[in-house]
Structure formats: C-alpha cells, structure tokens
Write a protein that binds this DNA or RNA. Structure first.
Lengths: 202, 202
DNA sequence: TTTTATACTTAACAGTGTTAAGTGAAATAA
DNA sequence: TTATTTCACTTAACACTGTTAAGTATAAAA
C-alpha cells in the first residue's frame, strides 16, 4: 500500500466530489443552465480538471443518471418482491416510476426527455445501462401478467412499450408543463394507470 | 397607397423570409443546432436584423410552431367532420396526432418536448395559442364520447389529459429514442390507442 | 540527484444569444 | 429645393458556452 494506492484513492475521491457538485447543480438548476465553469468553481478546481475525470459534460450527466436510475430500479424491484398479485405489482411499479420522475424532475428530464447534444439516447438506453435495467424489469412484470392470463394481449414487448409510453407521457408532461391547468395530479396518474390496466385485462 | 404601405408590405415580406429560413433550418437540423448567425446568413442579412422582427430565438420558434400546429388542428377537425362515430373519431384523431409528431419531429420536439430557455411551455400552451386549440379540440372529442355514454368515466378533463399523455408518450419516445429496439411502429401506436379506448369504454 | 510521470492550470479557440451605438438612405417638413 | 427626421440595417462588442493544446509545478521512481 505505497503512494500508488493512496493516489488512486485520492483520484476516486475527487471524481466523486465532481459528481456530487454536478448532481447538485443539475438537479437544482437543470443541465442546460449549468456550465462546466460553475461546476469547477464549486469544487474549487479549474474547469479543465473535470476533463481529466470525465469525457465531456454529457458523460458527467450520464454517470449521474446511471446512479439515479439504479435507485429507481431498486425501488421497483422491492415493490415486485413484496406484492404478490402481478397486476397490482405492475400498477404500483408504474406509480413508482411516475412518482420518481416527479421527485427528480431534472434527472428524469435529462435521462428520458431531452438528452443533450447529438448523442440522442444512444448512451442512455444502451445495453447494460441502468435505464435498460429498469425497462427489463418492467417487461418482466408485464410477462408475469401475460403468463398468468391476466392480460388479453400476449405480445409482451409491445405491451411493455405501450405501458412505458403511458407512464412517460404523464411524467414528462407534468414535468415540462407545470403551468398547464392540470386536474389533480394523483387522480390523473391513477386514472391513467387504471385506464390501461383495465384496457389490457381480459 | 403611398410609400408607407409599400414599406409595411416589404417589412412583412422580410418577416416571412426570416420565418421560412428559420423553419427550414430548425426542421432539418433541430432548434439547438441552428444559430441566429446561420439564419441570418441564409437570408443574407446581418444577425441583428432578426431582432428587429422577432423578440429572440425562442419567439422565432414559437411563431413557427403556431403555424405548424394550426395545420395539425385543421387535420384533426377534418377527421371529426367526416367521422360520425365519436369513439372512432377520437381514435383516428389520436392517430393523426402521433403521425403528425413523427412527420414533423423537430416541430413536435420544440413544441411539446423540450422548449428552449426558461420559458418552459408558458407561451406554447397559453390561452388562445394553436397548441391550446388542439387540446380543446381533443377535449370536445372526449366530451362527445362521454355524452353519448360510450365511456365509463365522466371526468372529461381528466380523460382528455390522460389520452393526451398517452399520445404524447408514444410520440415523444419514438422521436427521442430512435435507436431503441421498438416493436413495429404502427402496431405499437394502434395497440396503444386500442388499450386506452377499450379501457375507457363501458 | 536526475529523470519521469502525474495532477493540475493558463490561455486560447471557435462558437453562442443578444445589445448598444452608429450609418446611410429614404420619407417628410420647411 | 433644402433641412430634418425617421427608418432599416450593420458593426462591434459583451458576456457567455464547451473544449483543447500547451505549460508548470510537484511528487514518485531511477
């Protein structure tokens, strides 16, 4: 355990410091409104130092999103474990998804609504990413419902994508259009979930 | 009809020229990737000239979106006129909405997905805007279905918002995540519409 | 003690939206 | 017809942005 290990530890420490600073700013003010120079100022390093730890601004964001979406998937997996009825589990899972989006709007924004630059979702939902893990979990939930004959449709992949679209639709609209004259939030989300679960039921 | 009128006509002409240039660039390359200087270059004026005709870049975009969304609403109104069955009309209207989004992805993007700057949708769905006109038309369609007792739910406003969210969900995801392994597009959209119309039916 | 590698910074590039100040021509008033 | 004012437009600049090439100390290794 010479100085080699110590330096590596210090490197990891600074990496986390950058990540923490960036997360706080991104969540508070939104990705587009935070500059690399602001992040650098917060950690009291020069802006270029960040580039020694992350490829670019988008990469910084991606790492943060991965962290956050790992948490979302954990939440959804916990629900599945403690809920025996597959339809009920799916309902509660969707509710958790939407709530998560509303709880971390800027995280949701950057991961699912408008990714920055030319990367257009390529990295955010690539094979093995946390976002993909969440999607796969959703599909498992749908599969359960189909297997037990609770749904009239049998195309698991298509249903999963439709269900995701519903959840995403309500979450993203509530986030991006806060001034729109929405009906009661909770009622709207529950109605939404109710509509498509009964639409899918036998 | 002195020179006063001629100048006013010329002003309106240049205004349209700017609008046309901006629309072409925005649609082709996306709002974020088009600079005011590029637009100015295209019309062969200095960048500052644009500011004599439009408040800022976002305003330029807003005017374009209004134009485009007027067309969408026209399309949807035509469908309602020629389609007697209210549920069928709603279905076809939603289909038109999603298709429209996929046909003009950059228009849809800037109007419904990520509006630029701090204006966050305030202007895009304000009272009397074309976007609002489209929403109101959708609500009328839903109201028709409820009135004729075709839907089990009766909260017109809530259903409208849920239906909108569904359509928006599928449109926005298909637009922003083109690399995702989607099932067949048309099948997915039709399934989506089928799920929530049967979920709403008595 | 010299050399090499590491960590970080300075200065700059090429771009952004936007504005204050200035110019030249056309329309109006004298 | 000449002087004045109005209008359309441009130049130059401001205050930013993400990003990189080059340079500088400091710590580790030879």
């Amino acid at each position: 355990m010479g100085p080699r290990q110590r330096r590596e530890r210090e490197r990891e420490q600074l990496r986390q410091e950058i990540l923490d600073a960036a997360r706080e700013l991104f969540v508070k003010e939104g990705y587009e409104n935070v500059s690399m120079r602001r992040i650098a100022e917060k950690i009291e390093y020069s802006p270029t130092t960040i580039y020694l730890y992350f490829q670019d601004k988008a990469d910084l964001l991606f790492q943060i999103c991965e962290e956050t979406f790992a948490k979302l998937t954990d939440e959804m997996e916990a629900i599945t474990r403690e809920c025996k009825d597959p339809v009920e589990a799916l309902k509660r899972g969707c509710r958790a998804y939407v709530d998560f989006g509303l709880r971390y709007p800027n995280h949701y924004r950057v991961t699912f609504i408008n990714h920055p630059g030319r990367l257009e979702g390529q990295p955010y939902l690539r094979e093995g990413s946390q976002g993909m893990r969440a999607y796969n979990h959703l599909r498992q939930g749908v599969e359960e419902c189909v297997k037990e004959g609770r749904f009239r449709e049998t195309d698991v992949e298509a249903i999963t994508q439709a269900v995701w679209a519903s959840g995403h639709g309500i979450a993203s609209l509530l986030i991006t259009k806060p001034d729109f004259p929405w009906v009661n939030r909770d009622k709207l989300i529950d109605l939404m979930i109710d509509i498509y679960t009964s639409g899918l039921s036998v």
